[in-house]
């Protein structure tokens, strides 16, 4: 066996379900408070204080849900695929559980993004659904999530299920840029991306600062939801071990 000593210590600790359960127990309240605070501030700011768009009026306020949801749905997939890869390569159980916890959250967030996109489309484009490039990519992302959830629930053995879904998630990850490119090429009607990392946003700051707050809030919410699911998964898989028994009886 070739010993891999080049990974930092916390990486090995992460592999211990018990350590992971304890650390998430400590992190949960922090992220929960952060999520509630940022989402509350962001929502009030977005709904009441941010200026209305000069073209779209107040329906513009949907952006404060739609854009964070879209960003989160994509990064959630990324996280799932990376966690799956770590689980495949280092046979790390916790990474498998993280990947499994990500899928349903990502799917619901993708649905949220699609629903708000459709609702926003009604006053802006005049119809609930438009086959525009970015809505279509999001729909396909939702399909990828649903495929992963379906595969995971079809396989009974937890380890096989985790490995199979990891392979599928990685294949999807390779495909996402191709799908995005082809769908973009196929049709585009949407306004260009609201947030890019390299350029300054075109919106005035009183519009994008609350958006940033909402994005952070959504990430904190994701952290909370993911950790809750992860902890459930840990308890369920480690139910035979003594520390879980103590946890339940104690």
């Amino acid at each position: 066996m070739a010993e891999k000593k080049w990974m930092p210590r916390w990486f090995y600790q992460l592999a211990s379900p018990r350590w992971c359960y304890e650390i998430t127990g400590k992190l949960l309240p922090i992220f929960a408070i952060a999520a509630v605070a940022t989402l509350l501030v962001g929502t009030i700011w977005a709904l009441a204080f941010a200026p209305a768009d000069y073209q779209q009026g107040n329906s513009f306020r949907i952006i404060y849900i739609h854009v964070p949801a879209s960003i989160l749905a994509q990064s959630c997939y990324m996280m799932m695929a990376v966690a799956g890869a770590i689980g495949l390569i280092w046979k790390m159980k916790v990474a498998d559980m993280v990947a499994k916890a990500c899928a349903p959250i990502g799917a619901t967030i993708a649905i949220l993004s699609l629903a708000t996109g459709a609702i926003w489309g009604k006053p802006t484009w005049g119809s609930w659904w438009v086959w525009d490039a970015r809505l279509t990519s999001m729909l396909i992302l939702l399909f990828l999530y649903l495929g992963i959830i379906a595969l995971n629930s079809a396989i009974e053995n937890a380890q096989t299920a985790a490995q199979s879904t990891a392979v599928l998630a990685l294949v999807g990850l390779v495909n996402i840029p191709i799908i995005k490119y082809s769908v973009d090429w196929w049709n585009t009607l949407h306004q260009p991306a609201t947030f890019t990392l390299t350029e300054r946003p075109a919106m005035p700051s009183e519009m994008w600062v609350p958006l940033l707050v909402m994005v952070i809030g959504f990430y904190c919410f994701f952290a909370v939801a993911m950790m809750l699911r992860l902890r459930n998964e840990i308890i369920q898989r480690e139910r035979r071990s003594s520390w879980v028994r103590d946890l339940i009886t104690g």
Binding site: G57, N58, S59, I62, I65, I119
Partner: peptide, 16 residues
Amino acid sequence: DMGGHGLYVWLSYAIA
């Protein structure tokens, strides 16, 4: 009322 778009805006936030 949200400038006539109340239904859309509030529906989005409710779904969220």
